[in-house]
């Protein structure tokens, strides 16, 4: 067998494996999606808080899969001996599709459920409105990437252009993060465990990407050290996030409802404070 034939065979095997992993993951996603919906205890349209929970679960799953999609390449570059590196690379398509798979029901359930659909838009508070707009842009990016996540699309666009298009996944990641920080009241309180662990996970990814950037710079400028300015900046950001999330809570904390102070610039009494009569 010639080298060209062998390379062709390897490409075919990788392509088949990628398709199989993607099919398997999307099928598992469907099972998880149905399990969440069927076990949520949802009983009718006048049960908005259950819909909030369902929408948030789908949203978190979408964010989690997007995070894994973004993590694989920098992780494999930072740890060249990562076990089953090739398989992880081939799983990226399935992970990205899984993110889209959960982002769609997240958007539909949250928008047409607790947010009241199009008729609810004029009444949205500013933070939720911004979060909605950014989330929608992120969803459109994911949908475009999902629609072009195939070997046929690579042939059609050509590999360089396809790769450039799929780099917008980083923009989707940033939009998803901002969306999460804006709309998830869990993330309104910097001292919540959700905020701490999410920032730790994002910080790890930022650090790996910074190392990647420094490696790229080091190839251009061989005298540069491996841990260059990007990594140092990432470490600075991580340290700041650490102090932010672990510093003592302010006494006027509003318990994570950020639009209360964000929009009106005033603090409300903490839960339990007796209310004055008008």
């Amino acid at each position: 067998m010639t080298n060209s034939q062998e390379a062709h065979k390897n490409r075919e095997t990788a392509s088949s494996m990628r398709r199989r992993l993607a099919g398997m993951m999307v099928s598992l996603d469907l099972v998880i999606l149905l399990l969440v919906a069927l076990t949520s205890g949802y009983s009718g349209a006048d049960d908005p808080l259950v819909l909030v929970a369902i929408g948030d679960v789908y949203g978190l799953l979408a964010a989690g899969f997007l995070y894994l999609t973004l993590l694989i390449t920098p992780l494999a570059l930072a740890f060249p001996k990562l076990p089953a590196k090739e398989t992880w690379f081939l799983a990226r398509r399935g992970l990205g599709l899984s993110s889209l798979f959960f982002a769609l029901p997240h958007a539909l359930v949250s928008f047409f459920g607790p947010l009241g659909g199009f008729s609810g838009v004029p009444f949205l508070d500013p933070y939720t409105g911004w979060a909605l707009a950014l989330g929608l842009i992120g969803l459109i990016i994911l949908a475009v990437l999902g629609a072009t996540a195939s070997d046929a699309a690579i042939h059609k666009f050509g590999h360089p252009r396809w790769k450039l298009l799929h780099r917008t996944v980083y923009a989707a990641g940033v939009l998803a993060l901002v969306h999460l920080l804006l709309v998830g009241t869990h993330y309104g309180d910097p001292h919540s465990p959700w905020m701490f662990w999410s920032l730790a996970a994002v910080g790890f990814l930022v650090f790996l990407q910074a190392m990647r950037l420094d490696q790229w710079r080091a190839r251009l400028f061989p005298k540069d050290r491996r841990f260059g300015p990007a990594s140092l900046f990432a470490v600075f950001l991580l340290t700041w996030a650490w102090f932010w999330t672990t510093s003592p809570a302010a006494p006027e904390s509003t318990g994570g409802v950020r639009w209360v102070t964000g929009h009106h610039g005033m603090a409300l009494p903490a839960p339990g404070t007796p209310e004055a009569k008008p």
Binding site: V57, L61, S110, L124, G184, T185
Partner: peptide, 12 residues
């Protein structure tokens, strides 16, 4: 990851 988190409800 399937753990409830928070969100908002709009009523009009």
């Amino acid at each position: 990851w399937v753990t409830p988190v928070w969100g908002h409800v709009v009523l009009a």
